[in-house]
Nucleic acid binder design. Structure first.
Lengths: 227, 227, 227, 227
DNA sequence: GATGAATGAGATTTCATTCAT
DNA sequence: AATGAATGAAATCTCATTCAT
């Protein structure tokens, strides 16, 4: 309504530019601050680091949680991209490449790791299905044992995340050698596995009710005492 | 445990006993509460669960952090005990047994995991040296590849912790199969490892400056009021 | 547990004394501050006026709303007491006395008026049933017209509240003469009433979904915008 | 309405018209939003409902308060119009008609009720003097008791507003029967009134220092940033 | 020695108002 | 002239820690 002077049909959006810039600045700042202080870093710190007021931050991300989710989403999208490209690789080596590449990427985006593989995010499903296909390719080329399952790979991602969280930037490459060992263990030669894989249902339950630290930004009305 | 310097024989025994009982009750409660809510559980919740007043809790543990450390210590002591017993085992299988046993134990003591292998604790050094001996035994019996190092094992512990933290009680056995894969990868047969192990110095740095979540709800410097 | 030395069976509670004192201080302060500034007065102001820290206030009243409810409850209890006593009065004059007395009382407890007759409070039901009996007595003695209903009286209370809110302490007696007019209009002599009384169901709906200003302490997650 | 001082004939007409349209759209939106959410509705909500940007809104109304005042003014103008027309009515019934008509009107313009009869607005004076004349006419025709004063009528308006605020749209007609009772009480027949009317001075004081909720979200003195 | 009430800094979130585009 | 992004003070609520009883 009030349609002002019709604007050039080329210009995508007028004042959206700085807004988008700002959004990126905030996300970048959040990544840095979370990487340094963990997810319990204060939103005020992030705003300061980004050089914006708190209101600006909250205009874009109405909740601390929304901010974290946005970070998670960014990382997941990159990882999904990596998985897609790995799918094209010959000789069934895509899976290994993907594991290495995505771990390296996560190492440089530690900010949101605690939430990365523990959210019931649509993109997590997407990533999972791509990984399933990578796994199948690897099996087809006898790169990995036939009894390896999809859920085994989810567990591997949790394990690597554990290493990344433990080391931070102080031993940022620790995961590499560990992954080598793991991949060696995944080769077809190995002995029969005694323990069965966990079920997809278990993983789904984990994703929807992440244990321990309650998704961090503790909901303010979750507890109520009296007397 | 922690048997302090033997004290004057005048000090009344029964009281001591009560005090120790109280201490244990608090520790047990902390374990339960932390396992459920994560380390950001409130001290008040723990006191309530333990059935003692906050003053009592603070008399035993001058700081929330001290309480966490005490939990860590308990777990470390048990783990050290496991390592000691594993040392006696024949055929160099002690290492594997230890890894399985200690992981199972940690799975049932999730309360303090985030701090378990990330503190500069004297007992961590003790555990490490025992593990070093287990590793040597395993090598001597050709159970594991000769180029496996002490630090590789620390990384393995971080990885398993990662799985335990991710799954909670919802998939409490997920670590078992993963450890199987890992052990398979540690066997001597495998290909040469491309990446070198991280250095002991890096690990020490990690232990003294744990990344991410700072010593948790960092004490606010104890500012005092006047009024 | 830990049952300390059994305490004298007479002493009701040991440290509860100052706690109760504090509770009363907070309630009194809240009454004063709300009366002056309205229900949107800040909780910090109340704490300051009461001479306690915010934590203390929030230990007793875990929510601003809980504090308001407590005030409302206090007032309702007094009003119920007045209604009970009025029930004993002869000649069916109890109703009028009650209206006068309770209005005067509300005039001196303006703090929580906006919530007084607009909450779905159990005590409101109690008050209502007492008022119903007062009304019946008044009818029995031909003090008021026979077609007067229970809901008419609720509306009268809303009207008086409106006057009290409008005047504050600047014309604290304005309601008196108005009530006189109203009571005159309620006498049996008057002409037939054209408009029917509103239904009890309507009133119940009003009580459970008070209109306009959302019960004031606007819930913090009631709105969420984005982009 | 509000036709300002006639301006230079150069100023372009069409623009003016758009501006006025915008103004009306904002006012209408404010009425709707305030009616739904109360006066603490956010200015952003109003702008959105009106379909204009916040800057536009603030160009017309430099302050949230100014917006509310404008609403009040609109309502007052309508009410004054009603009073004027009622003045012409025969038999001294104008007063009653006016009370009914204006109450009905207010019921459909609940947005600004909390401020309607509590502002030191020039139009309130105008309305008051008209009401005074209506009252005189009513007395002249013995429709109401002779000792009824101007201030009694202000109090009646406050009372009715109280009912309207309490009921919202959930019992939008509750005021009608109440007004009937009240008018019955105002008839000449009644007993002598014990309480004297409040003084005009008191009312004036109320209007200039409205009690309770201060001019609502009091502007925080417009502190400015630097950065 | 034990209890739990009190403290107050700090965390998240809202919103009136300004100003670059 | 219009838009809506940015600002930051202020509000509510939490919780580690102390200390009167």
């Amino acid at each position: 309504m009030t349609t002002p002077a019709p604007r050039s049909p080329i210009a995508p959006r007028p004042l959206r530019r700085d807004a988008a810039e700002n959004r990126d600045r905030v996300l970048a700042a959040a990544g840095r601050v979370f990487a340094e202080q963990g997810l319990e870093a204060s939103v005020a710190d992030i705003a300061r680091e980004a050089g914006v007021g708190m209101g600006t931050l909250y205009r874009r991300f109405p909740t601390k949680d929304a901010l974290i989710e946005a970070l998670v989403q960014d990382v997941l999208e990159s990882i999904i991209e990596m998985a897609s490209q790995a799918l094209g690789e010959p000789d069934g080596l895509g899976l290994e490449h993907f594991l290495r590449q995505s771990s390296a990427y996560q190492a440089t985006h530690r900010g949101c790791l605690p939430r990365l593989w523990n959210t019931d995010h649509e993109l997590v499903q997407t990533a999972r299905s791509l990984i399933t296909r990578l796994l199948q390719e690897a099996k087809d080329h006898q790169r990995v044992r036939a009894d390896l399952t999809n859920t085994d790979l989810t567990v591997i991602l949790w394990a690597i995340r554990g290493i990344l969280e433990a080391t931070g930037e102080l031993a940022a490459d620790a995961w590499q050698r560990h992954l080598e060992l793991l991949i060696a263990g995944m080769r077809p030669a190995g002995p029969d596995l005694v323990h069965p894989p966990i079920s997809q249902a278990q993983i789904d339950r984990v994703l929807s009710h992440p244990p321990g630290p309650p998704a961090h930004p503790v909901s303010p009305d979750s507890k109520r005492r009296e007397r």
